[in-house]
Nucleic acid binder design. Structure first.
Length: 491
RNA sequence: GGUCCCAUCGUCUAGUUAGGUCUAGGACACCAGGUUUUCAUCCUGGCAACCCGGGUUCGAAUCCCGGUGGGAUCACCA
């Protein structure tokens, strides 16, 4: 496609510009990671700008949550409301004068005009356009106002917005790094509102002014913005600025291919954190949605990603968010961690309530290869701390061929072995247990399954003898004898 | 509906820029087998795709055109 030489070698100034209107969105993380990686790789700057011009929906607590969530992923902005920087403020609500001033320039140049139309008139106009199945968009009524009338009505305090004066003839072309040349007929472009009645800019104005003033060199954002690029290009032209490079990345999708949404997928980064997904797994997985290293390899570290990332290589198809693959990546990353590190993550992340770090470390060998999410730890390890209701039905199924009385006898003897041989090697213990089954002439598997269900409660559980160690020999024997009684009671 | 974007296994993708090396490669998932007292891990193998139709060409997954399908967008939200 539109290959840009030097893109990965000249310092890039990139940005992510979330709106603080909800929980930190996984899509924000997705776009942020590409922008961050390019800036980092090229030794440029990565800016986190808060687009809070929608005063009704923006909430300040979301701003902090977004910055924190990105930091959790390992994405730290060089410039942001929190980090500061030379091109601030980084909160659009604090840049009102800048927009007003630039908007004034546009009006003077004739590239924008005041519009006094009421929302009622706009609603009627749209209804009529819809009924007539005609072209949608502002009809340009206020565009014919004389400069004098426009200025004096504004001076009288009449509420108004400022609109972009689009030349409806011709076509606007721009190049997208991933998609090549895109052209849109100007008649399709609406006289977009640039400055709202409340004096705040809309996205279109704010975004262009800020990106220019902050020195942004490449805009990587979601593809949903493609249709509005002509408006931005017109603004750059009107200001006589040169436009940055555009790269519209695909949208993350639900299983039905629609744009990823709360209803069909967890979309909050906080949810993934609280479920026990590792930030490095999350980042690896997200990067995989459209990008991959040169070799056939899907697991990589954040450092490797940064070192190799090239925006040209992002694919254009919208990737379906696959939780199963995320879990696989997470499991792999969990297994890569040192037990020490994993124990820390478990305790610090609140996934081992009631356990000390050392206690966790002690039993970790039983669970490290079994965890897909850190949140599973408590459930998987429950049997170690408390008696778990044994799966009697499972036991019956697995020991069908053994005389119940015989099995009971075997289990009683096994309980005896567990206590008498406590502290001996697992090999010796196992040999003794096998001898029991052999003596009574039934399958060793049945005996082990009985013990397993007695001690861990379930048919599928961590290795038996290490579990006995973790539970304690006395307690294990007690649970075994309890099972024997339960067996007799139900027989 | 208008406009724009996209289109390789169920899913993520390699291959498309410079057409042959592609009887289309890898990974997840799934299935089968091995290791294991269960599960998990690990190992081996298997299933499985170039949306359709034309054209260009000796040759097309790759280039062109037309369909079809999916998506996004048409706000004083971003």
């Amino acid at each position: 496609m539109a290959r840009l030489e030097g893109l990965t070698t000249t310092p890039a100034v990139t940005r992510v510009a979330p709106s603080p209107t909800g929980d930190p969105h996984v899509g924000t993380g997705y776009v942020a990671l590409f922008n961050w990686a390019l800036a980092k790789r090229t030794g440029g700057r990565f800016i986190l700008r808060i687009e809070d011009t929608d005063q009704a929906r923006s909430r300040s607590e979301h701003e902090g949550a977004i910055i924190d969530a990105l930091a959790w992923l390992g994405i730290e902005a060089d410039e942001s409301p929190r980090a500061g920087g030379d091109y601030g403020p980084y909160r659009q609500s604090e840049r009102g004068e800048i927009y007003a001033d630039h908007c004034g320039q546009l009006i003077e140049k004739g590239a924008a005009y005041r519009c006094f139309c009421t929302s009622e008139r706009l609603a009627e106009m749209r209804a009529a356009q819809k009924a007539a199945k005609g072209q949608m968009g502002y009809d340009g009524l206020c565009r014919s106002l004389t400069a004098h009338e426009s200025a004096s009505r504004a001076a009288d305090g009449e509420p108004h917005v400022v609109r972009l004066a689009v030349d409806k003839s011709g076509v606007t072309r721009f190049t997208d790094l991933l998609r090549g040349e895109i052209e849109i007929q100007n008649r399709e472009v609406d006289d977009q509102v640039l400055l709202k009645t409340d004096g705040m800019p809309t996205y279109h104005l704010a975004n262009v002014v800020d990106d220019h003033l902050m020195g942004v060199t490449i805009i990587m954002r979601a593809e949903e913005w493609i249709p509005s690029v002509p408006k931005h290009v017109m603004l750059y032209d009107a200001f006589e600025w040169s436009a940055p490079t555009y790269a519209h990345v695909p949208l993350l999708r639900n299983a039905d291919k629609s744009k990823i949404s709360k209803r069909k997928n967890p979309t909050s980064i906080l949810w993934y954190r609280d479920e026990g997904f590792l930030p490095e797994a999350m980042l690896n997985f997200l990067a995989l949605q459209g990008w991959r290293p040169n070799e056939d390899r899907e697991l990589f570290t954040t450092e490797e990603f940064v070192a190799e990332f090239d925006p040209h290589a992002i694919s254009t198809g919208g990737p379906v968010f696959d939780m199963t693959k995320l879990e696989w990546v997470n499991g792999e990353k969990i297994r890569e961690l040192s037990p020490d590190e994993l124990a820390s993550r478990l305790t610090n992340g609140g996934f081992a309530e009631g356990w000390t770090r050392d206690e966790v470390l002690g039993v970790l060998p039983l669970f490290q290869e079994r965890l897909k999410r850190l949140s599973e730890f408590l459930d998987q390890s429950r049997y170690i701390r408390e008696t778990v209701e044994p799966d009697m039905e499972g036991l019956r199924k697995k020991t069908k061929k053994v005389e119940p009385a015989l099995l009971a006898t075997g289990l009683r003897e096994a309980a005896e072995v567990l206590t008498s041989m406590a502290g001996k090697s697992h090999d010796e213990q196992e040999a003794a247990l096998r001898a029991i089954a052999d003596r009574h002439e039934f399958k060793v598997g049945a005996l082990f399954m009985g013990l397993r269900i007695a001690i861990t409660g379930a048919m599928a559980s961590p290795p038996l003898l290490p579990s006995v160690d973790a539970v304690g020999a006395e307690e294990s024997a007690r649970r075994t004898l309890a099972l024997v009684e339960q067996l007799a009671a139900t027989a």
